[in-house]
């Protein structure tokens, strides 16, 4: 369980994370989305105690990271796959981590096998591809058999096999009752892996929804011959055809009742599934900091 309460981080005058309150629960894969610079990595760094919050708290199982006894047995994290000394072998890297947590070397071999890194373990980490570095980083996160896993962009650089492997792994870890928290830019991958999505924009929480609800979107499609009165009273309505409106932020029940009050004839009234990408673009449209000027 990860609990963020009013987490705020400012660098100089710039607010990277702004009053973020979240609870990440066991048994769930929570996806963490947001444009570049939205504050995802900063949030994760604050959870690990790498960056001190300007205000607010980040707790793991009710305790600050610094207060955890042998922290990797509680939370395993991968923030930067390339953050390994290039001259050290993968195995030696994991052994150093294991020694710091009083984890036996036999467990190092287990996670190497689990991540498919046994053959590469003797090689210096500097020779690894990004995909291999990711696998090594995931091995490190799993080393302490923790109840909480936090991975920043874990599928970056993985081949399709690797992507499928990590999806299955994360799903099974959540099924075992662990808390899984991952960030990614790959929307389609999130759609298949996460149960819940937290979307950040300019450091602020802009959505926290189950995948189901987010995909259903709150979009309703209405068709009928005389929809103008409905479009006039609902500001969120967009014309998507000569006799078709798409309305965000209302349920089909609400819109059906409004249409009835206005005495309109409807030929269609249904909620429309949007892809995660569409929902995401809609939600973050106003908070893309480094977006291209359209």
């Amino acid at each position: 369980m990860i609990t963020l309460r009013g987490l705020t981080k400012r660098y100089g005058g710039k607010t990277a994370v702004d009053d973020l309150t979240l609870e990440l629960t066991p048994g769930t894969v929570t996806g963490f989305l947001g444009p570049n610079g939205a504050g995802k990595s900063t949030t994760m760094r604050a959870i690990l105690g790498l960056d001190a919050p300007t205000s607010g708290t980040a707790l793991i199982d009710g305790r600050r990271y610094a207060d955890l006894h042998r922290p990797l047995r509680t939370i395993g994290a991968l923030l930067d796959a390339k953050a390994v000394h290039p001259a050290r072998s993968g195995r030696d890297h994991l052994r150093a981590v294991a020694l710091s947590q009083a984890i036996p070397f036999s467990r190092v071999e287990e996670v190497l096998a689990l991540t498919g890194m046994t053959d590469a373990a003797r090689r210096r980490a500097g020779t690894y591809s990004l995909g291999m570095s990711q696998r090594l980083g995931i091995a490190g996160a799993l080393l302490g058999d923790p109840q909480v896993l936090m991975l920043d962009e874990p599928v970056n650089g993985l081949d399709p096999d690797g992507v499928r492997w990590i999806r299955t792994l994360l799903r099974s870890l959540a099924a075992e009752g662990r808390t899984v928290f991952i960030s990614s830019h790959l929307m389609s991958e999130m759609e298949r892996t996460a149960d819940r999505l937290v979307i950040l924009g300019q450091g602020r929480l802009i959505a926290d929804e189950t995948m189901e609800r987010l995909l259903a979107g709150a979009q309703v499609r209405v068709r009928g011959p005389q929809l103008r009165p409905l479009a006039e009273i609902l500001r969120a309505a967009r014309w998507t055809g000569p006799d078709e409106l798409t309305i965000a932020g209302h349920t089909t029940e609400e819109i059906g009742r409004r249409a009835h009050e206005l005495g309109l004839v409807l030929s269609e009234l249904r909620s429309v599934e949007s892809s995660l990408e569409e929902s995401y673009m809609r939600l973050t449209a106003n908070s893309i900091e480094y977006g291209a000027q359209a």
Binding site: L48, G49, P71, D80, A83, V84, H85, P86, V97, Q101
Partner: peptide, 14 residues
């Protein structure tokens, strides 16, 4: 230089 300080501090937060 190698940013491995991230891993080191995760192992030994003090």
């Amino acid at each position: 230089a190698t940013r491995s300080i991230v891993v080191t501090l995760a192992c030994t937060p003090s």
